[in-house]
Every structure is written in structure tokens, then in C-alpha cells.
Design a protein around this nucleic acid. Structure first.
Length: 637
RNA sequence: GGUCCCUUAGCUCAAUUGGCAGAGCAAUUGACUCUUAAUCAAUAGGUUGAAGGUUCGAUUCCUUCAGGGAUCACCA
């Protein structure tokens, strides 16, 4: 293990931690007496020159030069050059916990330090703090990535964004701007009399939208809940309660595909305004974008997907029928039957064949997606979606086939869906029955209705309209990024332990485990099959008794998953390795489309135990000396 | 979920047709009073993502697995 370089680097630095402690200096000090940030010293150098300041931050570079050492310390604002001069800094002073010149070798790039000294300019003209005292704040025991090339591996950047951001401070400006964007949004809405509310993330129903939800379990209530796929029904309850302008910046969870524009967990600015219709929101959203551009980003022109977009200009507003008419020359208002509309749809030139649609409205939407959507680069408010695809919106008074609804397109990307909310409870109920409860629908299209919300409407909700621009999509536009991972500081990643960390930390864990008197802990131990066989092969654990008994358990899920798959997971407890203590081995999973096949997994599980587990045990110990009994597989539901 | 691609030292990257795994930065030791990707000298550093297979020989070819990326489907 010592021949792994990182472990050597780590040990060298851990040695420095020990040396500091021996000197009487805390390598992880809690107190810091910063008086100035780097940028304020640089900005006001004229008045700061010669003054004594205390700066603090991360050590980013190190240039020893005999009795003189230059380095850069980076705080939240800037990098500041520090000059250590042997005579100025002096020697380590334990009464003040100051590190002296001859102990500078205990510092490493990556450490957090505090420096007190006078502001000066070097001979080459760089503003510098000439240090007369130095305190260690936090010792870093892993080397930072190369300061010049930084992190390039996408996975490393996403998993360890804190490192990428440390090395590329420009990255910090980018995320700061996104934070300012949310601040500007709140300011904008507050100025217009909106109240911000929080709404539940754990919801008993998943109303609004056809997305697939995440399901979770509330133990205290002994029931399943859904992670919010929408917050609108709660905002509407607030409207019914008598608040006229409300909003939430909510978390949304959708258990669907992940790509450059979609993330399972995202945020949306959702508003509800009473006594207004969708036309009010067209103005609101346009003003909001203009305000954010100016206040948070200080400019009006942005490069989105290779196109320059000017938020200073008024946005294009067009109905879906007119947009398709403009692009194809055909007027969907003139189609009388679905067949006619579908015939037209198939005549359109598109790369993929177009499936026949269920209604004229669906056909219109399909034609729009193929021919118009990719061309909507300039900010466009597209209104008048057919009612067939907008079951929860209000129909237009003068043309009831179309909804009082609009979508926002910028750079060919949909950035929000907005409408006059349907507040006729009878109509809503009918609509839901018509669209989501038909027997011919498969389970994926089936969609629950929040009956409690229908009751709200029966008591009455005034005319209401809302907007819902996505935070990440706005951030992508304003910060000119084309990947959603670049605007989410912590994008979702599958858990992964790097091999090097497995070596560094697992061995430590094993040492803990070895050091314990396992017989007296009374705690059972859960291991994966892989870990178990590793422990056996390393002779870290071995049977205590010559009699080994294996108790297999198969847990069968009572309900199929969203995909209709039945699932069973197996684990087993084993007696005979420790006194009064079982070893639990986890990790057998089976899935099947049919419930009956899962019941048959019992036998497959038993074979798995006999072949895989027994083989592993026999491989490392004299098989004849041990009596291995396998109990009947117990099924838990 | 489908298809294609990627994974070599802490970081960034090499390695010819399957033939001794190599460099820069970082690290360690030493020198150095204005450097700034400091410089100079020396030293050390590898589970080539994991497991298996083919081969005299595998970073390279094959299989499985893990993670990541691109793209399609679903969606905002």
C-alpha cells in the first residue's frame, strides 16, 4: 500500500500534521482574524499601502527563493501575493501560535492560512502583503490538481466541483451569477406584490403534469408519498385562501431520462396571480427576463446555442395554429377530421416517420414539434395550444378548441409553460375522466387526480393564471451554457468509490474492525458478497466454529415497479463466524415481468447460495473440516 | 432502457502492427534575497477502472462488470 503515490503524498502531509502538533500548533485552528479581503486591498491600494492587514485563504502557489518566499493566497474574492521574508517573519512563536520562516516547509499548496503583514508593491509591481506573522488554519492532506491544467475529466469535475471551483475561480463567478439571478427574481416579484411561500416536497398525490414521480415512504404515517413533480395545486390553494399574488421557488423531481437539458431534480419559479388571465403573464415573464438580464448579468445580449439573443427587444407572440400555418402553409383550423390532419402530418418531410395522432389537436402539436419548435431561436411566446393537449387549462372564450395557454421558447428550448387555470370543478373532473381514466390507456398514461383539489374548486377559486419558468434553463440561457450540469453545482451522480479511496478508507475501516473485540460488540455485520470473499481471502475473518449455518431470506416486493416489474432481493445471515453474532451478506436481486417467476426465485437464490457462497467458503478453508448447513429460504413480503 | 465512445502516476497527457509503461506539473532532498507556470541539481513515484479469456508476451485483441460522456426514446 505504501507504493501507491497518493498514499505517500498523504502520509507525508499527515506527518506534517503531526509535526505541527508536536510544535504545539493546531493544524485545524478554528479562529481567524481576517481584516481584509484581497480585492479590497487591490482596489484601494493607494490608501492601503503601508497599512497592516490580515488576510486569509487557501495557499495556491509556492515559490521559495532562499531567505525569501513568494506565494499566492486565494480568498473568496481574489488571489493575493504574500511575501515571506526571513527577517520580517521571524521564528515560530508558540505564545502567539505563529509559524516562523524555518517551519514554512510544513506548509503545502492547498492549506488554509492567515497572514498579517503590511501592504506593499514588489519590484515587478504586484500588490503584495509582506508577512510578519503566519498562522495555520487548516492543513490539507491531499494534493490539489495541477494548478495550470486543472481538472479536465468530466466525471472528476462533476463529482468534485469544489476542486474545480478552487482551481478555476471564474467558475465561482458563474455560480454567483446564478445565485444573483434568483435574488433578482425574488426582488422582481416582491416589488410587484408577490408573496413567497414554501410548498411540500413530499406530496400524497402527484398532480399537474404527466411526469413519472419518485416514490418515498413516510414511516410515521405508514404510507407512500411522492416527491413533488409540481407545486401548482398548492399555490392555487393559496389563491383560494385569499392571497392574490403568490410564488414559490420549488424543487421538482421527475423520474425520467437524464440528458443535457433534463435533470431528475430541478427548480422552478412558479407564480399564481388571481383576477388575471394568461395575457398578464406574457408581460410578466418578458419583464422578468429583462430584469434578470439587467440586474443579475448586467447585459441584454446573450449567446444561446450559437445565436445572439437580445432581451431588450419585445418577444414574438404567435398562436400555435398560425406558427404551423407560417411554416407549412396549411391551416389546421380547416381540418374537419383526424384522418385529414394525419394525412397532412405524414406528408410532412421529417427524418423520423410520424405516427398517426389521436386527434386534430394532437396532430397540430406534432406538426408544431417537427416544423416549428427547432426554429424558435428568438424568445417566442407561443399561445393557443389545442385543448386536447392542455386538459387542465381554460379554453379561450372565442375559440374553445384552444387553450388560454402559452409556452416560452428561447434558443429552441422550452423554458416554461403557462396558462389560465381551469377553475370549473365539474369541467376539470370530466376532463380528467375523459383524458386519464379511459380503460384503453396503459398504466403509464393513467394519471391520478387530486380530489382534494377538486373540492377546493367547488368552494371556489377566482380566475387565476401562473407562470413556471425553469431555474436551470434560465441559468443556461443567461450564463450561456448548453449543458444543465454546468448550472447545477451538484449534479446527480451514481455513487462511486474510486479504487484509490477504497484502498485508503477501506483498509482504515478494516483496521478499526480488526482492533475491535468483535465478540463483545453484539452488533451484527452486513457485508457484500464481494467484501465477504475479500475478508476471507485476506484471512481477516475466519470461522469460529466448525458448524456454519446459513439462513437465507428473500424479500419479495408486494407491488410491481412503475415499469411493471416484480422485484425480489435476497440476503442471508450466517452463524459460526463470531460468538453470538451473525454475519449478514446482502446483494442478490432478481426482477421479472411475472409475479409467478419471482416466487420461483426462491430456488434460484438457493442455487446462488450453494454455488457462490459455499464455493467461496470452501475455497479458503478446508471444506471437509466444516459442516455447512443451509436452512430453507424464508420469504418475506 | 437502446446504440456508440472514454477510463494509463495526485493532475494533464504519451506509448508505432500485440514486444522493456514514458513526459510535464505536483512531490521528496539540496542550493538560492523581488519571484510569479521562478530557476538549478538530484531522488522517488504505476492494481494501465475491476474480473476473466486468447497469446511465448496484453495499456493494445475478446467477454463480463463498474463509472462517465454523447445520442435516441420519455420529459421541462
Amino acid at each position: 500500500m505504501a507504493d501507491i503515490p497518493l498514499i505517500n503524498y498523504r502520509n507525508i502531509r499527515l506527518g506534517k500534521v503531526e509535526k505541527l502538533r508536536e510544535l504545539g500548533i493546531n493544524p485545524f485552528r478554528s479562529k481567524c482574524s481576517r481584516t481584509h479581503y484581497a480585492d479590497s486591498i487591490i482596489k484601494d491600494f493607494e490608501s492601503m499601502e503601508g497599512q497592516t492587514v490580515t488576510v486569509a485563504g487557501r495557499l495556491m502557489s509556492w515559490r521559495p527563493h532562499g531567505k525569501l518566499t513568494f506565494c499566492h493566497v486565494q480568498d473568496q474574492t481574489e488571489r493575493m501575493q504574500i511575501l515571506f521574508h526571513k527577517k520580517e517573519l521571524g521564528e515560530t512563536d508558540l505564545s502567539l501560535k505563529n509559524l516562523g520562516y524555518s517551519d514554512l516547509k510544513l506548509l503545502d499548496v492547498g492549506d488554509f492560512i492567515e497572514i498579517t503583514g503590511s501592504v506593499m508593491k514588489t519590484q515587478k509591481g504586484e500588490i503584495t502583503v509582506l508577512a510578519n506573522s503566519l498562522k495555520m488554519l487548516t492543513k490539507s492532506i491531499r494534493p490539489l490538481p495541477d494548478k495550470w491544467s486543472g481538472l479536465k475529466d468530466r466525471e472528476a469535475i462533476l463529482r468534485r466541483r469544489y476542486l474545480d471551483t478552487t482551481i478555476k475561480p471564474g467558475n465561482k463567478d458563474h455560480f454567483e451569477a446564478i445565485a444573483r439571478m434568483l435574488f433578482a427574481t425574488r426582488k422582481f416579484l416582491d416589488d410587484r406584490g408577490f408573496l413567497e411561500f414554501t410548498t411540500p416536497v413530499l406530496q400524497p398525490q402527484y398532480g399537474g403534469g404527466t411526469a413519472k414521480p419518485f416514490i418515498t415512504r413516510v414511516n410515521a404515517l405508514d404510507c407512500d408519498m411522492y416527491l413533488s413533480i409540481s407545486h401548482e395545486l398548492y399555490l392555487k390553494r393559496l389563491i383560494a385562501a385569499g392571497f392574490d399574488k403568490v410564488y414559490t421557488i420549488g424543487k421538482y423531481f421527475r423520474n425520467e431520462g437524464i440528458d443535457k437539458q433534463h435533470h431528475p431534480e430541478f427548480s422552478m419559479i412558479e407564480t399564481m396571480t388571481a383576477y388575471e388571465n394568461y395575457e398578464y403573464n406574457m408581460d410578466l415573464i418578458e419583464d422578468l427576463f429583462r430584469y434578470i438580464a439587467e440586474q443579475a448579468f448586467g447585459k441584454m445580449e446573450f449567446n444561446v446555442q450559437g445565436h445572439t439573443i437580445d432581451f431588450g427587444k419585445p418577444w414574438k407572440r404567435i398562436s400555435m395554429v398560425d406558427a404551423v400555418l407560417e411554416a407549412t402553409g396549411r391551416d389546421f383550423r380547416k381540418f374537419k377530421t383526424v384522418e385529414e390532419a394525419n394525412a397532412f402530418l405524414t406528408s410532412l418531410e421529417s427524418e423520423e416517420p410520424v405516427a398517426p395522432q389521436a386527434s386534430i389537436g394532437h396532430a397540430l402539436a406534432a406538426a408544431f414539434e417537427i416544423k416549428v419548435e427547432p426554429t424558435l431561436i428568438e424568445p417566442t411566446l407561443l399561445y393557443g395550444q389545442p385543448m386536447e393537449i392542455s386538459p387542465l387549462a381554460k379554453p379561450m372564450d372565442d375559440d374553445p378548441g384552444f387553450a388560454e395557454r402559452f409556452e416560452i421558447f428561447i434558443g429552441g428550448m422550452e423554458c416554461g409553460d403557462n396558462w389560465s387555470e381551469q377553475n370549473d370543478p365539474v369541467h376539470l373532473l370530466e376532463c380528467w375522466k375523459e383524458n386519464f381514466r379511459r380503460k384503453d390507456l396503459n398504466p403509464e398514461e393513467f394519471h391520478p387526480l387530486d380530489l382534494d383539489f377538486v373540492e377546493v374548486l367547488e368552494y371556489g377559486m377566482p380566475p387565476t393564471t401562473g407562470i413556471g419558468p425553469g431555474v436551470e434553463r434560465m441559468a443556461m440561457i443567461f450564463s450561456e451554457k448548453d449543458n444543465i450540469d454546468d448550472v447545477i453545482f451538484f449534479p446527480m451522480m451514481k455513487p462511486h468509490v474510486s479504487p484509490i479511496n477504497a484502498i485508503i478508507y477501506e483498509v482504515d475501516q478494516l483496521e478499526d474492525f480488526r482492533g475491535k473485540e468483535v465478540e463483545t460488540t453484539g452488533e451484527d455485520m452486513a457485508l457484500s458478497m464481494h467484501d465477504f470473499s475479500e475478508l476471507l481471502s485476506d484471512k481477516i475473518i475466519s470461522p469460529e466454529s466448525t458448524e456454519l449455518t446459513i439462513y437465507p431470506y428473500l424479500q419479495v416486493w408486494e407491488k410491481p415497479s412503475a415499469k411493471g416489474q416484480w422485484k425480489a432481493t435476497g440476503y442471508l445471515d450466517m452463524d459460526g463466524f463470531f460468538k453470538n453474532k451473525k454475519v449478514r451478506i446482502v446483494g442478490y436481486t432478481a426482477k421479472s415481468d411475472k409475479k409467478s417467476e419471482i416466487d420461483a426465485e426462491k430456488e434460484a437464490f438457493r442455487i446462488f447460495i450453494e454455488q457462490s457462497l459455499s464455493k467461496t467458503i470452501r475455497q479458503y478453508f478446508n471444506a471437509d473440516a466444516y459442516d455447512i448447513k443451509i436452512a430453507e429460504v424464508k420469504i418475506i413480503r
